[in-house]
Structures are given as structure tokens and as C-alpha cells.
Design a protein around this nucleic acid. Structure first.
Lengths: 183, 183
DNA sequence: CATCTCATGTAACTGGTTACATGATTCG
DNA sequence: CGAATCATGTAACCAGTTACATGAGATG
């Protein structure tokens, strides 16, 4: 799947692996995550599949950059993937829920401390999505008016992040209340 | 992590790999997923680590069963893991959002069809959590009163499933409205 | 008669993580 | 002067998936 994330970003403009890393850190964190090593490896595979091409750009004061450009085949591949509808939801893997499910042997105070810590993490995320992420999307949209449609889609993914952390917050409030009241 | 899910279930009662598979299909689907092959492989590793032991039970009319029992070391290991607080949220990987983020080249009708299909999937999940899952938890709790505390925790994970699919539903409604109105 | 359930497992592969390596430049 | 940034990569490892194999008994 990382494959399509990389192809997707390369439709905007040619980029290096390093640039793509930043895309993941800044814009894509709300829906995907990738380690740098994996990005470089996958770019190599994409080039072998002829979905991207690359040229080395020598630089004087910095290491050389390898700039990747999406090919027509790459665009076609991405487009085909977009057309495939998702017919079943991916299986859930939630470490938090796994822990909570088997938390019976824990002490009340210990569990409450963990739930409150978690609550804090989600709270931070909510303000992150409402603050810097929103600002970044609006800023980019204003600077590049031709990306107006894209910007609405970015906003859609941002909104998901906001809503989902809000939901976790509500859920944790319920859980904390439950554990406080009866354990 | 599958490790701890297996250890967790084995604290209730000794089970076979096959039994554990059912636990995942019925109870654990709201927070974890595992293929059978992976369950057998992991059980073997757990035995090598002495966190579980196994005995073969010969059966006349069915294949022999290998019954796994958690050891004290296993309980201890699980307990230690429960005590480790989660200090950062796991990175998100949402194929749906990945697609949506790059959906600009899609046609309105195509995208709307996919969003509506998705909406339906979430709707089904919501009624699944409100119906059979809830019934199963209440049933088990009534039949085994000593698991009352556990049952409250199971209900907590069920509630998360319900809330998170409801959230997705709300989000999709917003998205569908947005795409219908302006594309 | 076909399919499902019971029951356990191996082999090949894929996707991703962690750790490591290099080395100049810029910033506080 | 240390840390961060720029920039790319390899090697070892780990978790998990897919496909395959076996074979009897029960169910429709």
C-alpha cells in the first residue's frame, strides 16, 4: 500500500525519498506511516516495475539527490487501484483494546492511570488536527489554487483524524467513569 | 502482540489452537485478528519460551487435540505487559483515507459509489456490535458470574467498536454530502 | 454428493521495523 | 561544540499472510 502513497505524492511533483519522508511526517500522518528505509526500498521496487523513473541531481554543498518522477504506467496503476472499491473493512488491531480486554488482574489505580495517560494523548491529537494540520491544509490550498479539489480531500482525511480522536476521548471518559465507579 | 492475546485467553481456561481461533472469530474480532496458521506458530513459540505447556489429547472420532495451558511464567509475562503503559499512540494506517486523499482524478459517480458501499459496511458493523456481540457478552456474563469484572471489560471493547463505526458513519455522511454538493 | 466442521501444521513470501553506516552543513 | 538537517542506503530480523497438505466425521 505504501506503493500507492508514494505514487500518489509523485503525481503532485517529482520528489526525492527524503522529500517523501516529509510528506509522511507532515501531511500523511493522519492516514499512513512509513519508515525512511522502507520508502527508499519501495521506490527502488517501483523503479524496477517502471512505475517511476529517477535521475541523480548532483549538489555542491549537500549529498546528491535522487529525484523520482512518476511514469504514465505509474499513473495508470494508481488510477486502477483507486477504482477498486473496498468491499470489506480491514481487520482491527488495537493494542489498547487488547490490553483492556484482559485488564481484570490489574489494580484500579494502575488501570486508571493508564486510561488517563491515554486520554491525554488523544487530547493532544485533537488539538493537533484542529490546529497545525488545518492551518497547513488551508495554507497550501491558498498558495496553490489549482489544488482546490485535492485540498478538500485532504481536509476530509484531517476531519477523520479529528473525529476519531474525539471519539476515543468520549470512549475513554466513559471507561474512566466506569472503572472509578465500580472495579 | 498476538502472543499476549493468546496468553490472555489461556488465563480463562486451557484451550487448543482451534479453540483460540474461535475466540478470535467471535469475541476478539473487535480488537484483534489472527490467521489460524499464525496462531499455531505463535503457540509453538510460546511453548519454547515456557509461557505455556501442551498435552496431546487423543480422540476417537476426531483428530487429536493439543491442549495448551498457561504457566506461571506466562501469567507473569502477561501481567508485566499489562503494566507497561502505552505512552504513544500507534501510527494510523487507513487504506480508505489513503485512497480518499488521492481521489482527485476519480469521477464523482465512481467515488460516491465507493463511499456509499463503505457506508453500508459500517452500518452492518454497528448493528453487529449492538446485536450479536452484545448478546454474547451478556449471555456469557450471566452463565459465568465469576467473570463479571471481565464481562465489563469485554463490554468496554464492544462499546469502542460500536462508537468507532458510528463515527465512520457520521464521517461518511459528511463526505458524501460534500462530494454531492461540489466535485 | 458436496460442503462444513474438526484439527494441526509447513513453506514461501510480503511488508515493515530496527539497527547500522556515512559524511558534510547549518543552527543554537 | 553538540545537535539537527540534508541525503541515501544495506542487513538482519520479525510479524503476519497465502497457499498448501492431510483426513475423518457430520450436515444438508
Amino acid at each position: 500500500m505504501l506503493k500507492y502513497a508514494l505514487l500518489g505524492f509523485l503525481t503532485y511533483t517529482p520528489m526525492t525519498g527524503y522529500d517523501l519522508k516529509h510528506q509522511f511526517a507532515v501531511v500523511a500522518a493522519s492516514f499512513w506511516h512509513a519508515e525512511v528505509s522502507q520508502i527508499y526500498l519501495t521506490l527502488k521496487k517501483l523503479e524496477a516495475e517502471r512505475l517511476v523513473t529517477s535521475q541523480i541531481q548532483p549538489q555542491d554543498d549537500h549529498p546528491d539527490r535522487r529525484l523520482y518522477t512518476i511514469t504514465d504506467r505509474g499513473r495508470h496503476d494508481l488510477r486502477a487501484w483507486l477504482s477498486e472499491p473496498i468491499t470489506e473493512l480491514p481487520p482491527i488491531k488495537q493494542p489498547v483494546l487488547l490490553k483492556l480486554f484482559f485488564a481484570a488482574p490489574m489494580e484500579q489505580a494502575e488501570l486508571l492511570a493508564q486510561l488517563r495517560l491515554l486520554r491525554n494523548l488523544h487530547l493532544q491529537k485533537v488539538s493537533y488536527y484542529r490546529g497545525p494540520v488545518l492551518a497547513h491544509i488551508r495554507g497550501t490550498a491558498q498558495r496553490h489554487p489549482h489544488l482546490a479539489k485535492d485540498a478538500r480531500l485532504w481536509e476530509a482525511t484531517r476531519r477523520f483524524g479529528e473525529l476519531s480522536h474525539e471519539m476515543s476521548l468520549r470512549w475513554l471518559d466513559e471507561m474512566i467513569a466506569m472503572v472509578e465507579e465500580r472495579w
